[in-house]
């Protein structure tokens, strides 16, 4: 298990949070209960299984929703 923090461009609407949360939760390898989208800090935090998923995949999914990824960080949990 690894812990990822993705910094996004400023989020402006609370419904964005729901979109991103649903999108990340639906990805295979993401620990569903760990997904946290911080509206004000514009960050996404979640735990994931690095054998089933890479952060780049998650980044792509978020970008596809229309939110820019500024940088991401992965740490051992």
């Amino acid at each position: 298990m690894k812990k990822a923090t993705i910094q996004l461009d400023t989020l402006a609407c609370p419904s964005c949070v729901q979109k991103i949360e649903n999108a990340v939760k639906s990805m295979d390898g993401v620990e569903k209960d760990s997904v946290k989208v911080l509206f004000n800090a514009s960050k996404v935090k979640f735990d994931f299984d690095e054998e089933r998923l890479s952060v780049e995949d998650t980044e792509k999914a978020i970008t596809a929703l229309g939110y820019d990824v500024k940088k991401s960080q992965v740490r051992a949990k």
């Binding site: 419904s15 729901q18 979109k19 649903n22 999108a23 929703l65 229309g66």
Partner: peptide, 15 residues
């Protein structure tokens, strides 16, 4: 476009 993306992840958004 935003509405379509929201619906894809099953959210009925304001868009």
């Amino acid at each position: 476009i935003q509405a379509y993306q929201a619906l894809r992840v099953k959210v009925v958004s304001i868009d």
